[in-house]
Design a protein around this nucleic acid. Sequence first.
DNA 1: TCCAGTGTTTGATAACAACCAAACAGGCGG
DNA 2: CCGCCTGTTTGGTTGTTATCAAACACTGGA
Lengths: 148, 148
Amino acid sequence: MTPKLHLHIDERSGVPVYRQMMDQIKYYVAGATLRPGDQIPSIRELAAALAVNPTTVVKAYTELEREGVIEKRHGKGAFIAPEAPSLTQAEQEDALRRSAKQLAVEATQMHVPTPKVITVVREELSALGPVRGDESEPVKFAVMVGGH
Amino acid sequence: MTPKLHLHIDERSGVPVYRQMMDQIKYYVAGATLRPGDQIPSIRELAAALAVNPTTVVKAYTELEREGVIEKRHGKGAFIAPEAPSLTQAEQEDALRRSAKQLAVEATQMHVPTPKVITVVREELSALGPVRGDESEPVKFAVMVGGH
DNA sequence: TCCAGTGTTTGATAACAACCAAACAGGCGG
DNA sequence: CCGCCTGTTTGGTTGTTATCAAACACTGGA
């Protein structure tokens, strides 16, 4: 019902916070960590955890609802929609490739050798990897704020 | 004098355009593709190439000048400053790691296996790699607009 | 019934990003 | 001197992002 989530909000990135929230919830749906019926953090709870204004969360949730990803239920909370449209295979690949490209561009411009890039990517994956595994255990929400 | 540059502006990223321009010029300086004295595209030229408003380029250049990275010379153009402060090793690593982390977060949330991630990164690096090599040849500026 | 938690709504403020138009001014070569 | 390139400056408009404050309304359990 309440899988363990990690929302990484990078304020320095320049990407609107509400968009980062939207994207990552969609990624969780795509990865099936969040499934139809699952409850997600309440507006005030998420706002408090991320130290942002509640209206910012409202914006993200409202937009996600407009896209059919979630449902907001007055007095009850917010949930993954029964027929939440998941990202297609192509869209997932696109999202991944966009980030990979951004990385590649920077690395190329700074003349960072490929092996070094790969190493860093592996390190960052490892740093996040151990988190998943026990998806059955109903845990409280863990929201990560961070950037670096 | 005028090395071949590739500025990748991703409008969908949410990152302000003027900031993307600033960052990437700094990366080129860090990678020594751009060296002190090198001329960079004129405001109007870059604006035209990227199809953005000249004032946006002015903003980026003005800020870069404020940071001591470039010098704008009235009537002549813009150049890398004689003592342009390059990113420290740590700052370069941070920048790279920030992008890598973003990639790792997405991959983890979407449950994309590590080998797949590595493959995509290698592909994107390869797609950009062939570009560099002949840094001696004075070529006209090539500015790439793109995102995906 | 009460109450705590939940989503809903409104209006205002502030800062930022980008666009657009137009004019002004320095550098340089023909 | 003229023309064309260059950066400079101004003023305004538009839309977005995020904050803040306050009140209203639904749900469910004690």
